[in-house]
Amino acid sequence: MSARRILVVAAHPDDEILGMGGTIAKHALHEGAEVAILWVTEGSSQQYPGDVEIMERKFLEARAAAKILGVTDCRQHHLPDMRLDTLPHVEVNKVIEDAVAEFGPDTVYTVHADINMDHSTVFRSVMVATRPRVGTPVRRVLSYAPMSSVEWTPHFENTFRPNWFSNISDTIEDKIRSFDCYTTENRPWPHPRSPRAIRAIAESWGSSAGWACAEPFVLIRQLCD
């Protein structure tokens, strides 16, 4: 039986760790799945305009973080950070459609639509790229919620209501170690992008699912033959 092929789609480098780093490690290190990470934007030009050095450093951090989780297939694109909503929808679609066609995943994880417009744009493009059609390899689509984004979405707009939980009790340390690679994104406690917050949030979700640590997801679609 061939290994599962899992594509994780992130709008920016660090989305994937904050939202589902423990689950990536579980798939890649413990289940033997082939995992690829796709970063749609360059992830820094809005925060650090004109600073090419920090953009390159952030992608080095991203690859180092992915390696800790057992992932070496990292796909980097350079669509404009925090400006995806200014591009034609088909341009963002194509980046994801190409990755699906090239990698052939059976499972796709996408960043959830929230207050961050890049996240919302990527989410909608993943919905286009993974729509059920003859010959598609994609059987399951789930969304994940990066901390310091989804919880800041106004309650009347927040659609992240998890119905799928992943036990990361054995991989929470991998998640924290991988995020330590992101020196450009680490913040001191009590910011949600701090090691202490990452652990606390995982423990909170774990307590609601009967585990020490967990990550939450929304199951968007499951196709069963």
Rank of each mutant, 00 (worst) to 15 (best):
S2L: 08
A10Y: 10
A10P: 11
P13K: 02
M20D: 01
L29M: 08
W39M: 13
E42W: 07
S45E: 11
S45Q: 13
S45N: 04
Q46A: 14
Q47A: 14
V52C: 06
E61Y: 02
A65H: 12
A66C: 14
L69R: 02
L69P: 06
V71M: 12
R75F: 04
H77S: 02
H77P: 05
H78D: 10
H78Q: 09
M82I: 04
M82E: 02
R83W: 04
L84M: 04
V92Y: 06
E97K: 15
A99F: 00
A101P: 04
F103I: 10
V111K: 02
I115D: 11
D118C: 06
H119Y: 10
S120R: 12
V122K: 01
V126H: 01
T130R: 06
R140T: 02
V141K: 06
A145L: 00
A145N: 09
M147Q: 14
S148P: 04
E151S: 13
N158D: 09
N158G: 10
N163G: 14
W164D: 14
W164I: 00
N167Y: 01
D174A: 09
R177H: 11
S178N: 03
F179H: 03
T183P: 04
E185K: 14
P188A: 08
W189K: 10
P190R: 11
P192R: 12
S194I: 05
A197N: 11
R199G: 07
E203G: 08
E203K: 14
S204T: 08
S207E: 15
A209N: 08
W211K: 12
A212T: 12
A212F: 07
C213I: 00
A214F: 01
L219Y: 13
R221D: 13
Q222L: 09
L223W: 06
C224P: 00
